[in-house]
């Protein structure tokens, strides 16, 4: 752990009043120089009702654990979130195909955080367009008395842009080309049929594996190169 990380963690511990998170903040964070082979990471995907973390809501979350350069499908989870006092899923249903009636088996936001948080302890978080997951997670935690996650975030979209820029592909004019599906297609990864939080988390994890392979493989690439 770097000095900066130590300080960040200590401050987080001081300000956090969510008991669940307090315990997890005891976990050391991975050093930026750590090799991917020696790391565990969590690929995470949120489905939300919009892009504004303050106003919109998380309606589903999916995640899967990565150990080094392996995705452990046994760890994959998908949780749908219920918002009792709110109006329905509304417009985003057209994007995610989730209807109110599908939410019968859904769980409360608190239950989601209780299941998700232990998985994230001490692990970098992987997401495509990670600002969404980072922002919504911070909002959720603050509302519950916690603090924003001090964990490193790996954004497969930002990484893809960097790799493309390095290759001189001039992707800036082609922003549409950075969607998860487009990035996967470019690398010959299979289409994933079902857009759900769980499937998207696995899809982002696979994309990261392809990116790591391009950078020289998990035995060589260090965490800081992915951020």
């Amino acid at each position: 752990m770097s000095l900066l990380q130590r300080l960040r963690l200590a401050r987080a511990r001081r300000t956090c009043s969510l008991p669940l998170q307090q315990r997890l903040l005891e976990h050391p964070l991975p050093a930026p120089g750590a090799r991917i082979t020696d790391l565990e990471m969590v690929a995470l995907d949120f489905e939300t009702t919009g892009l504004d973390a303050q106003r919109d809501q998380v309606i589903a979350a999916g995640w899967v654990l990565m150990r080094g350069d392996r995705i452990l499908l046994a760890s994959a989870r998908e949780v749908r979130v219920r918002h009792d006092d709110e109006e329905g899923v509304g417009q985003s249903a057209t994007i995610h195909g989730i209807l109110d009636s599908d939410l019968d088996d859904a769980e409360s936001v608190d239950a989601l955080v209780e299941q998700l948080l232990p998985e994230l302890a001490g692990r970098p978080v992987v997401a495509h367009a990670a600002a969404i997951e980072r922002g919504f997670l911070a909002t959720l935690l603050r509302r519950m008395g916690g603090v924003p996650l001090p964990n490193p975030f790996i954004d497969t979209m930002a990484l893809e842009r960097r790799l493309l820029d390095a290759a001189g592909s001039g992707v800036r004019e082609l922003h549409g080309d950075l969607t998860l599906d487009a990035c996967r297609a470019r690398r010959g990864l299979p289409d994933h049929q079902r857009h759900s939080a769980g499937a998207d988390a696995v899809a982002a994890a696979e994309l990261l594996l392809a990116q790591i392979a391009q950078l020289g493989g998990a035995g060589k690439v260090r965490l800081r190169e992915l951020r």
């Binding site: 998908e78 749908r80 759900s196």
Partner: peptide
């Protein structure tokens, strides 16, 4: 809890 591995199972 929904099934995050539906795609995998389908394959």
């Amino acid at each position: 809890m929904s099934n995050p591995l539906a795609d995998i199972e389908k394959f």
